[in-house]
Every structure is written in structure tokens, then in C-alpha cells.
């Protein structure tokens, strides 16, 4: 679903690259954590997937397409296939919950009746039924993040990118959010989540990709936030290959459009 081939991203010629020759593949239906200290390249990774930035060298494939070859007027179509959730929720303060979610459908020209049918369904998925008419400031942080997730997935993207979605939330609320993300992943959406939250990573036991200074230093399936196996230097990379093979393949049916409708 997302494939990085030897991708390097340099923001500043003098500084070290934000991403340095990264090779990474995230399969359809996978749930992957992106961990690493601030400045390790997590956000750059997400920006490259969204074509917010161009890779300095190497190739980024999203849903089988080389993003460098997508012309600017087709970038919106790429982004319709990717939902994004942020640490700061980014809701529209003057719109209520329903309108915030509906906004994502309005701007891509969905009809009123489709919006009326879809939004309550998605709000139910994220556990917000009955709160359609609340304004964002009347909701707790966890609920606001649920609205943001609902907005990100309402157009049924194949990929959900989450940039520290639990960064502003307490541990209990965070686990609730993880439940929602897991449910969305169960429905067939590929989820990539950048995070610092070790409790969550340890609890979920999903694939973990660790970045350090723009280099992938660990790629383990069903892993913990910090590696249990003490590996030094380069040999960590060797672990990558074996780690990836342990991931169970997702069911292809879960991903097709009609199937998605029922599962939601």
C-alpha cells in the first residue's frame, strides 16, 4: 500500500537528511507504528506519503502509484485515498460534530443524501452517536479526536495516517482512541501511526518501525516500543527483513468498496 524505495529527503543541504535512503513497505490492511525521537523523520515520512513534499531522491509508491508521477491536478484524488489525523484534532470550531464530518464530504462534492446517510454511520463507528449537534469546545479531548478520526475516514480512504493522535490525551482516553483505530484497521484500512506513546505501542503489539536520524533502525512485527532484543548498530537492519515476514496477510475482501460499506 505504501512503499518507499531508497527514499532520501533533504530539507537543508548543510544539515543531515531528514530521511536517509529509507526502504520500507507497508502492506494493505496493515497496522504499523512509526516510532522514534523528535526529528527522527516520522513526520517527513507522512508528508511524503501525502505528497506535501517531494522526495529528494528515491521513489514513493502509494496504492501502487509513484507519487512523483502524479500531476498536480490529480493530487486531490491521491489525498482522497488517505485519511489524516493530527495531535491537535484540527476541527472547525464554529461547526458542530455532524457538520465537521460532513465538511469532508461536501468539499469533494458528495450529495446531501449520501452525507445524511454516511455521517451518522461513521459517528457510530467512532463511538459518538447522539453527539451530532455538539460543538467541538463542548467535547472532551478524546471525543474531539474521535470526531477528527470520523472526518478522516468518512470518505473511506484506503490509508489512515495518524500523527501522534494520542499526544494530547490521557492514557485511558488514548486506549479508547486506539480501539477506534484498531476497529478501522479491522475494516481493512491500512493504518500508519507516528507516536511517542510507549504504553500504547506495548499494549497493541503491532508492527513497529523505528526511525533514528532519518534511518530505519528497527522494523519488527508484533513488537514493543523498545526492542527486547539487544542488537547493536548495523545488525539491527538485518532484523528488519525477518520481522516483516511475520505479518499476517490481510483479507482482500475487507478492502473492496462494497465490502467496506457493510462492515461499517
Amino acid at each position: 500500500m505504501i512503499r518507499f524505495e531508497n527514499v532520501t529527503k533533504v530539507y537543508d543541504q548543510q544539515a543531515r537528511p531528514a530521511l536517509d535512503a529509507v526502504n520500507l513497505e507497508i502492506d494493505r490492511g496493515e497496522f504499523a507504528f512509526l516510532v522514534g525521537a523528535s526529528g527522527s523523520g516520522k513526520s517527513t515520512f507522512l508528508r511524503l506519503v501525502l505528497k506535501e513534499d517531494r522526495a529528494s531522491s528515491g521513489t514513493v509508491y502509494v496504492a501502487g502509484q509513484n507519487v512523483a508521477k502524479i500531476s498536480s491536478w490529480r493530487v486531490p484524488r491521491l489525498r482522497r485515498g488517505i485519511g489524516v489525523v493530527f495531535q491537535d484534532f484540527r476541527l472547525l470550531p464554529q461547526k458542530n460534530v455532524f457538520a465537521n464530518v460532513a465538511f469532508a464530504m461536501q468539499v469533494i462534492g458528495k450529495s446531501r443524501s449520501v452525507i445524511r446517510d454516511t455521517v451518522p454511520e461513521v459517528l457510530k463507528t467512532v463511538g459518538l452517536e447522539g453527539k451530532e449537534n455538539r460543538l467541538p469546545h463542548e467535547l472532551s479531548g478524546g471525543e474531539q479526536q474521535r470526531v477528527a478520526i470520523a472526518r478522516a475516514v468518512v470518505n473511506r480512504p484506503g490509508i489512515l495516517l495518524a500523527d501522534e493522535p494520542t499526544g494530547n490525551l490521557d492514557p485511558t482516553t488514548s486506549m479508547g482512541i486506539m480501539g477506534v483505530l484498531d476497529k478501522i484497521n479491522q475494516n481493512g484500512t491500512t493504518v500508519v501511526m507516528a507516536t511517542h506513546d510507549d504504553d500504547i505501542v506495548n499494549e497493541m503489539r503491532k508492527r513497529v518501525v523505528e526511525l533514528k536520524n532519518g534511518v530505519v533502525i528497527r522494523d519488527e512485527a508484533k513488537a514493543l516500543y523498545t526492542s527486547m532484543i539487544p542488537i547493536v548498530g548495523q545488525s539491527r537492519r538485518l532484523k528488519d527483513a525477518s520481522g516483516r515476514e511475520e505479518i499476517p496477510p490481510p483479507s482482500p475482501a475487507a478492502y473492496s468498496d462494497d465490502a467496506g460499506e457493510e462492515q461499517r
Binding site: S72, W73, R77, R79, L92, F103, A104, V107
Partner: peptide, 17 residues
């Protein structure tokens, strides 16, 4: 900018924005 930022992310076309 908040609205337009969200519009970009959910894939609104240049015209709509």
C-alpha cells in the same frame, strides 16, 4: 486557513478551494 487546510487534506480540488 483552517478550513482550506482541511479541504486540502480530504482531497478537495483546487477549484473548490
Amino acid at each position: 486557513r483552517r478550513e482550506t487546510g482541511i479541504m486540502r487534506l480530504v482531497g478537495a480540488s483546487k477549484t473548490v478551494i
